[in-house]
């Protein structure tokens, strides 16, 4: 009995199989119930005990070897079949994809978020007020009486409807009425910011009939003008991300603050780009001051005990400065190209 011959023969036949069915047939021929190895085992009965033992062992080895060969062949046939199937599933990977419309948030959203966070880290809560305001909250309570020339500093939109004082409603010209609303609702200490939409009837490349401001108000027993300066410088350092920030506070006038100031930050032009924080030119950033005691009294705050500061700045303006944007009108154009170029994707928001 030539075991070696059987193995060679089996190896050859397994090798020649081209699909799983053929391989299965070969497997039956050798390892099946009536297969060659079974037959060989049957022939053992005529041998001596010694021979039975050694030939039996060899036959078992043969079975294991053939089994292994078949399993290996089966694996390789499977791979071959999958590969040939994949060949029919090839796509044109060079087909150009359409223009991607990555969605973005508006730059103003990013600014809102940053402003709220920076001031939250300094202890400021957010407050709100309506866009359609009474004459009293927008002007009179802020020490801007009727016929005061300061009213002409701000071109006001009026609404065709009157309030309980029989005065037409106005579109708030600044976020300052939120100071009044907050002080009438809360007892000092008060420490708030109020971001929101504001309106003036003015429209050109630097003015938009609608824009955004943020108001700040901090009232307690001892807040002074040094605190005002420090707070605003710290805000600008964080917002514009400039550590050495050259600033200037100039005397100015707002009826609702006294003393009043405007804050400028230095800039220079480097490689045709505006660079903030250094240089010999100045950019106006915001208006601020110590809250005029008349305003506090209008809100029933005891001015013998309480004092504090307020500020207001244009959010569109600081956004434009920070990101080098030039036309405020494009902010409100809804132009998706502009949003795609200037907005912030989720990772940056």
């Amino acid at each position: 009995m030539d075991i070696k011959k059987v193995l060679n023969e089996a190896t050859k036949q397994i090798e020649q199989c081209s699909d799983q069915q053929e391989l299965q047939n070969v497997k039956v021929v050798y390892l099946g119930k009536k297969g060659k190895i079974t037959e060989l085992l049957k022939s053992l009965k005529d041998l001596s005990l010694e021979e039975k033992k050694s030939t039996g062992a060899k036959l078992n080895l043969l079975r294991t070897d053939i089994d292994k060969l078949i399993k290996n062949k089966l694996d390789s046939l499977k791979v071959k079949e999958i590969n040939s199937k994949l060949k029919n599933e090839f796509l044109d990977i060079s087909f150009p994809p359409p223009k991607s419309n990555l969605s973005k948030v508006h730059p103003i959203s990013k600014t809102f978020d940053e402003v709220i966070n920076i001031f939250a880290s300094m202890g400021y809560s957010v407050a709100e007020g309506p866009d359609i305001e009474t004459d009293y909250f927008n002007f009179s309570a802020l020490n801007i009486p009727a016929n005061h020339p300061a009213r002409e500093m701000q071109d006001t939109f009026y609404i065709d409807d009157t309030d309980k004082d029989n005065k037409p409603y106005v579109l708030r010209t600044h976020t300052s009425p939120v100071q009044i609303r907050t002080l009438l609702n809360e007892k000092p200490p008060v420490k708030i910011i109020a971001p929101g939409r504001t309106y003036r009837c003015d429209s050109d490349s630097t003015h938009s009939p609608m824009f955004h401001q943020v108001e700040g108000l901090f009232i307690n027993e001892n807040t002074n003008m040094g605190d005002l300066k420090g707070t605003l410088i710290e805000f600008c350092k964080q917002f514009f991300n400039v550590q050495n920030l050259k600033v200037r506070f100039r005397p100015s006038y707002f009826p609702f603050t006294e003393p009043s100031a405007e804050m400028d930050i230095a800039y220079e032009i480097v490689n045709n780009k505006i660079h903030l924080g250094t240089g010999d030119f100045w950019l106006e950033i915001l208006g601020c001051g110590m809250v005029n005691p008349i305003v506090l009294e209008n809100c029933n705050v005891d001015t013998k005990i309480y004092q504090g500061f307020a500020f207001g700045m244009g959010l569109d303006r600081i956004t434009m400065l920070k990101y080098g944007l030039t036309d405020i009108r494009s902010f409100f154009s809804g132009n998706l190209n502009w949003i795609a170029n200037n907005g912030f994707s989720i990772g940056d928001y």
């Binding site: 969605s103 973005k104 508006h106 902010f331 409100f332």
Partner: peptide, 8 residues
Amino acid sequence: SEIITFSF
């Protein structure tokens, strides 16, 4: 995408 339009 976010847009901002006038309140008018």
